[in-house]
């Protein structure tokens, strides 16, 4: 898809967020509360034990992880019911009579959404948290760049996941239960609540087979310095492989879904 068009739609979606004046204040408070709860829980947990390092995390490291994974998660906010709503009200018909890729239009819409959340929520939450909590991030330009790349790839993975679940609407129309399942899987298996290192042993092989850890966990470990620069590069390689796998699933689902699609209302 032509980049100019992509950016246009990013900006339309961004502006839409601005016009409907998503309640920024509530969003910030809500995000900050999460950060506060998680960091407090970790502090309480760590104070119960004599050892200071658990699963490779010092208290500072785990607090940093909790703050940063939340920051990434908030930046990755996207409306996962877009496709569902377009199928529900039939407006998907209008999009399909345009010479544009449905996947990329969807991605552009998500990006606009996420940019808004990054600016309006992530930024203030990170700044406040750095002052309030014991957060320590290694300052290396290359590391930061690798983190950004890894985030972008991780973001595309999240968008693909939402695309795939959204396409279920072509078969079922009503997909709310799928969205709930997805939300649970995504938040937990991506390391959004607890880093993968803390998962029970029996879960770890399963997690390795799933793409979720490449969405939040790995980009965050790059940022906070748990992954070496060399490891960061292989993380990004693995993420790219997942992009290919998910891309194949997306296009397969799209091909099959097209035949199932019906348009609601005239």
């Amino acid at each position: 898809m032509n980049p100019k068009l992509f950016l246009k739609f990013v900006s339309v979606s961004f502006q839409k967020q601005v016009t409907y004046r998503f309640d920024c204040f509530v969003g910030i408070v809500n995000g900050f509360l999460y950060v506060f709860i998680f960091t407090s829980l970790w502090k309480a947990l760590y104070s119960q034990f004599d050892t200071t390092v658990h699963n490779g995390y010092t208290l500072t490291a785990i607090v940093t992880y909790a703050v940063m994974v939340m920051a990434v998660r908030i930046s990755f906010t996207m409306d996962d019911s877009i496709i569902y709503r377009k199928v529900m009200d039939g407006s998907i018909a209008i999009e399909l009579v345009r010479p544009t890729s449905f996947f990329f239009m969807n991605l552009a819409e998500n990006v606009g959404n996420s940019l808004f959340h990054t600016m309006a929520r992530t930024a203030p939450i990170v700044i406040i948290s750095i002052f309030l909590f014991d957060v320590s991030i290694p300052f290396e330009v290359i590391r930061f760049l690798l983190f950004v790349v890894s985030c972008i790839v991780g973001y595309i993975l999240v968008s693909m996941m939402n695309f795939i679940v959204g396409l279920f609407a072509f078969w079922f129309i009503e997909i709310f239960p799928f969205l709930l399942f997805k939300y649970a899987f995504y938040t937990f298996f991506s390391g959004g609540i607890v880093p993968i290192d803390f998962f029970p042993e029996f879960l770890k092989p399963l997690v390795k087979l799933l793409p979720f850890q490449y969405m939040l966990y790995f980009p965050t470990t790059i940022l906070i310095g748990r992954a070496s620069l060399a490891e960061a590069q292989s993380i990004i390689m693995a993420q790219l492989i997942w992009i290919v796998i998910m891309g194949v699933i997306c296009s397969f689902m799209w091909g099959a879904g097209k035949k199932k699609l019906i348009i609601q209302g005239g």
């Binding site: 339309v12 502006q15 839409k16 016009t19 409907y20 039939g90 407006s91 018909a93 209008i94 399909l96 009579v97 345009r98 010479p99 544009t100 890729s101 097209k258 209302g265 005239g266």
Partner: peptide, 26 residues
């Protein structure tokens, strides 16, 4: 059309009277 949707879309115009192709908020 159903095999090359995008290619087809570039060469047709469509109006569905009961829904708009314009952006509601813009």
């Amino acid at each position: 059309p159903y095999k090359e949707r995008k290619k087809n879309a570039a060469k047709i115009g469509v109006v569905f009277g009961q829904r708009t192709q314009l952006w509601w908020d813009l």
